[in-house]
Simulated scan of single mutants.
Amino acid sequence: MARPLTARLTVVALLGAALLVSACGLPRSGPTKGEIYKGSVEKGGTSHVIEVDDRVSRAANYSPAYGFGSDFRNAGQVGADEVRPGDVLGLSIWENVDDGLLTSLGASSTQLTELQVDSQGYIFVPYAGRVRAAGNSPEELRRIITQKLESQTPDPQVMVTRVAGDGATVSVMGKVNAQGVYPIERPTRTLSSMLSKSGGVSIEPEVAVVTVKRGNASGKVWLRDLYSNTRNDIALRPGDVILVEEDQRSFTALGALGGQTKVPLGNEQINAIEAVAMVGGLATLLADPKGVFVMRTEPQAVARAVLGRNDIYGDQRMAYVLNLTKPDGMFVARDFVIRDGDTVYVTEAPFVQWQKIMNSILGTASDVGTAESAFR
């Protein structure tokens, strides 16, 4: 009677272990493929789960490009010594008469010091009136004032000097060898020449990104593209802020992979096969090659193209499924481009979960047998 009872106890123990394992769950790296599908929009979830084929790959092949808009590219070069609002100017005026309009008796010249250019770009000069100073060089302003005074005093001679203010300047900051405020001069009117003036970049050129902020607008470009395409070598404007930084684009790799980490994208375009390879490839004993997911948020236009629907509004959560076991699965994955912020997640093979359950059950059974032996 003892052995049948022992066998029954063993079966009960195994069933109890199975139930315990089922209730408590097993260690794993993330959701299963089935759990991800349960979160699809079709099943009441918030994500679109899309199996990738050639059409989907082409529709999703959108990569936000760095570059400057037309407002940056079409801006003309400024003069080397433009007067700006806030500058303080000095005027010296000579008159070819003994008793001139501005000179006192016995004096041949008048000094007008500390004429500040107002917020609208004007200064006031006696007998010449309100004169537009901003946007002109000191030489151009000298000619304007001379013309205005000529009708009232014979052969006036005018000299304009800058008392305070730097004229047209830009700020260069970030990963450059000499941060600072630099004047826009004849040799430094373009972005590339100003970067050279600041000593060049202090990081590897391959990962350097240059951002130019102009008022409320901004644009950025790879340093490599700045020198390879002259359209990116924009003319600078007074007040521009130039920031050089290392590219921060990356994707995150999770699940049954050779490594789980955040991976920099660099300046090259990376596809799904390369992304998996960069973290050591699929974990041979764990990964399900039918369950390679790329998760991202797509803008409305791309989501509509991928789903083939025009009733999609706003950004959409997408879970793209790559099945590497299909005849063309590797080619499709090779053509699927990874973007900044993507999560590449590989699910575990169903067998792995079953193996974990069996190991847990058998381990529990062994523990029960050991305990039974102890009480004999």
Rank of each mutant, 00 (worst) to 15 (best):
L101Q: 11
L102I: 09
L102H: 06
L102R: 10
T103I: 07
T103H: 04
T103S: 12
S104H: 05
S104P: 01
S104I: 05
L105G: 05
G106D: 05
G106N: 10
A107V: 06
S108P: 03
S109E: 06
S109A: 10
Q111W: 00
Q111Y: 02
L112A: 09
E114N: 15
E114T: 09
E114K: 15
L115H: 04
L115T: 11
Q116A: 11
V117G: 05
V117M: 04
V117F: 01
D118L: 05
D118N: 14
S119Y: 00
S119E: 05
S119C: 02
Q120F: 00
Q120G: 03
Q120V: 04
G121I: 00
G121C: 00
G121M: 00
Y122F: 10
Y122Q: 01
I123Y: 00
I123G: 00
I123T: 02
F124P: 01
F124V: 13
F124K: 10
V125T: 08
P126C: 09
P126S: 08
Y127M: 12
Y127K: 14
Y127C: 09
Y127R: 14
Y127H: 14
A128V: 13
A128T: 13
G129K: 14
R130F: 03
R130L: 07
R130I: 07
R130S: 10
V131Q: 06
R132I: 03
A134L: 07
G135C: 08
N136V: 02
N136G: 04
N136I: 01
S137I: 08
S137N: 08
P138W: 13
E139D: 13
E139H: 11
E139L: 13
E139R: 15
E140I: 14
L141F: 08
L141E: 08
L141S: 12
I144Q: 13
I144P: 02
I145D: 01
I145V: 12
I145A: 02
T146F: 04
Q147C: 06
Q147P: 02
Q147S: 15
K148C: 04
K148L: 12
S151D: 08
Q152M: 12
Q152T: 11
P156V: 07
P156W: 05
Q157C: 03
Q157G: 13
V158E: 01
M159C: 02
V160G: 04
T161S: 11
T161H: 05
R162Q: 05
R162E: 00
V163G: 04
V163W: 01
G165S: 10
D166P: 06
G167W: 03
G167L: 04
A168D: 06
A168M: 08
A168K: 11
A168P: 11
T169W: 03
V170C: 07
S171L: 11
V172W: 09
V172Q: 07
G174A: 11
G174R: 14
G174L: 08
K175G: 02
K175P: 01
V176C: 06
V176N: 05
V176P: 06
N177L: 13
A178E: 09
Q179N: 07
G180V: 14
G180I: 13
V181I: 15
Y182C: 07
Y182S: 06
Y182N: 07
P183M: 03
I184A: 04
E185D: 15
R186F: 02
T188Y: 14
R189K: 15
T190W: 05
T190A: 05
